[in-house]
Simulated assay, not measured.
Amino acid sequence: MKHTHGPNFGRKVDGCGRCDELAAGAEPVRWNGSARRDEEERRIAEIRAHDCRTSGCGPVCTFGDW
């Protein structure tokens, strides 16, 4: 469930479903960046494993470019 209000700097708001869940003991969301780090590691591994000869790249390889 999402909060029904804007940022409130850790204070609970009466009538907000998520605040009620937190007051009842639900775990707060933790943002530790692990998903982003895992995605970056996967992309780096893909780029390192790329072989221009088998892929038939031209003189300038653009593999992994966005």
Results as ranks from 00 to 15, higher is better:
residue 8 N to S: 14
residue 23 A to I: 03
residue 12 K to M: 08
residue 59 P to S: 12
residue 46 E to A: 15
residue 25 G to H: 05
residue 7 P to Q: 04
residue 32 N to Q: 02
residue 66 W to M: 04
residue 31 W to T: 06
residue 56 G to C: 05
residue 43 R to M: 07
residue 36 R to D: 03
residue 37 R to C: 01
residue 44 I to D: 04
residue 2 K to H: 03
residue 18 R to P: 01
residue 41 E to L: 12
residue 61 C to H: 10
residue 22 L to P: 02
residue 41 E to K: 13
residue 8 N to G: 08
residue 15 G to C: 01
residue 43 R to H: 01
residue 15 G to P: 00
residue 61 C to I: 11
residue 22 L to W: 08
residue 13 V to Q: 08
residue 15 G to N: 02
residue 41 E to M: 06
residue 33 G to I: 03
residue 7 P to R: 15
residue 38 D to R: 14
residue 35 A to D: 05
residue 49 A to M: 12
residue 17 G to N: 11
residue 40 E to D: 02
residue 17 G to E: 09
residue 60 V to F: 08
residue 24 A to E: 07
residue 12 K to E: 01
residue 47 I to V: 15
residue 49 A to G: 09
residue 61 C to K: 11
residue 48 R to S: 04
residue 63 F to W: 14
residue 61 C to Q: 08
residue 10 G to Y: 00
residue 5 H to K: 13
residue 31 W to N: 14
residue 23 A to N: 10
residue 44 I to G: 00
residue 33 G to S: 02
residue 54 T to K: 15
residue 56 G to T: 04
residue 29 V to I: 14
residue 11 R to Y: 00
residue 31 W to D: 06
residue 47 I to T: 08
residue 47 I to N: 06
residue 43 R to F: 01
residue 64 G to M: 13
residue 59 P to T: 09
residue 49 A to T: 09
residue 40 E to L: 15
residue 9 F to M: 06
residue 28 P to L: 05
residue 29 V to R: 15
residue 47 I to K: 14
residue 13 V to W: 02
residue 16 C to D: 03
residue 48 R to H: 08
residue 60 V to W: 10
residue 63 F to C: 08
residue 64 G to I: 11
residue 55 S to A: 15
residue 17 G to V: 10
residue 55 S to D: 12
residue 55 S to V: 03
residue 51 D to S: 15
residue 40 E to N: 13
residue 50 H to E: 11
